[in-house]
Design a protein around this nucleic acid. Sequence first.
DNA 1: TCATAGTTCGAACGTTCGTTCTAATCATAA
DNA 2: TTATGATTAGAACGAACGTTCGAACTATGA
Lengths: 256, 256
Amino acid sequence: MKAFPAIRASAKLRKAAPAPAETRFDRRLSEILDHATEVFCDKGYEGASMRDLSRASGMSLAGLYHYFHSKERLLYLIQKHAFTTIVEHLKERLKGITDPEQCIRVFIQNHLDYFVTNQSGLKVLAHEDEALKNGFSSEISGIKRAYYRICLGLMEDLKRERALDFNSRTAVMSLFGMINWIYTWYNPRVDGSAADLARQMGDIFLGGVGRRVVPSRKHLSMSSRAVRGRSREPALSAVEGASEGSAVRRRTNAAG
Amino acid sequence: MKAFPAIRASAKLRKAAPAPAETRFDRRLSEILDHATEVFCDKGYEGASMRDLSRASGMSLAGLYHYFHSKERLLYLIQKHAFTTIVEHLKERLKGITDPEQCIRVFIQNHLDYFVTNQSGLKVLAHEDEALKNGFSSEISGIKRAYYRICLGLMEDLKRERALDFNSRTAVMSLFGMINWIYTWYNPRVDGSAADLARQMGDIFLGGVGRRVVPSRKHLSMSSRAVRGRSREPALSAVEGASEGSAVRRRTNAAG
DNA sequence: TCATAGTTCGAACGTTCGTTCTAATCATAA
DNA sequence: TTATGATTAGAACGAACGTTCGAACTATGA
């Protein structure tokens, strides 16, 4: 409701074909998790009440507690599932790819793919990072650390192959910032597909913004071209903030 | 307390020399704002209770309400002050600088400078972005939009001068991601000064990570060198997450 | 058909929430 | 000293919080 209209739009169910040995319990829990993810996305973990979750999932307050022990454990389940999914998909997609640059592009693509098909999920992951207390947070931190280390490894591979010299930690964290921050601004109508964004962010991260673009690899999809045309405007005298711009559609809650 | 130990460490008072015409009320309110910023940083806006704020600022619950009408207005005051300060500093520092690349580097430096000297403030700004309801959020959104538009203008200047072709909105948002996400991972003991980080992030954003570095501009400060040495490790076989790494000190809550 | 296990619910628990009331305290100038 | 307005605090408000309990429902196999 409140938070970010674009995000709420296209949340889909978790699975198209449920696993055969899936019990009724598992199925129902999964539904609750999906609904809860939406609510946490909208109102934040602390801001969402169990009664909100009850309303969203069409189940009574007490009924919810048949599926998890506490609100905190619910967040834990959501985060664990989301993170595990991302890491699994990533490992799968990285198999067989050897070129370090390509690996990093796959990493970005995988992350953004998950976000675009499961926007609320990534927001809950990124935004409610510190919401869990010590007991619950440690396992999530573990998965998170593994994810971080995968990316760090890719970065080191790139450095070694090209004899580069940069701070890997800063690079990884900068990349995480780029791809996670997206939950605050992404609007599918304006910003195109995940593939579009992944290519753009890959270009920026790997090649920087301040260089002439060599139009290699079947560049410039339709949608990114459309967006690009939009921002061709005077744009100087920026410091004395001009009038309403058109490039930002929904909410420019990007800064800060 | 809870959130991010490194952030809590070095928060300083807002002003060294108070303005002459500053009333007792203003001074006291400013103190409360500082304490509240710390608490919001640690527990989040929703998670922090008025009683927490009361405890932190050493004032009774009822006494707080002499200085603001509601908890929400308190957050509004914090965000407005922080944002206004950042934008003012930026405008000041951009004066006289004409080279577009240098302007963007100044933008990054200004943002990170504010963060390092006022860590809790930027976190509250970045993390509690959506906490304000419609009435309060509109004015903050305005300042935010102005800040965004400044950066967008710098980006367009760079594009024009060098005849570049990239999506300005994506570029600006990516940059915001890089410099805002820092609140989730920055540790002064590991990551060096704001100037260090600003240079590194400027290099990445402008030149990309995947290029040989020309060691121009008095490169490589002490602290960044120290960090760099640390992460010189095997680093391959990344996909099957290896054992505990040493590059991440405090918490690797960077991902997801 | 009945017993059983799994599922759902209404109602309430004790606690904490943001906020307000009224009165007491403080600083200051006359 | 006294009068005055700014500041602070104790106690309480109703509302909402996360959670629990026991009873009622429902599906399933015997």
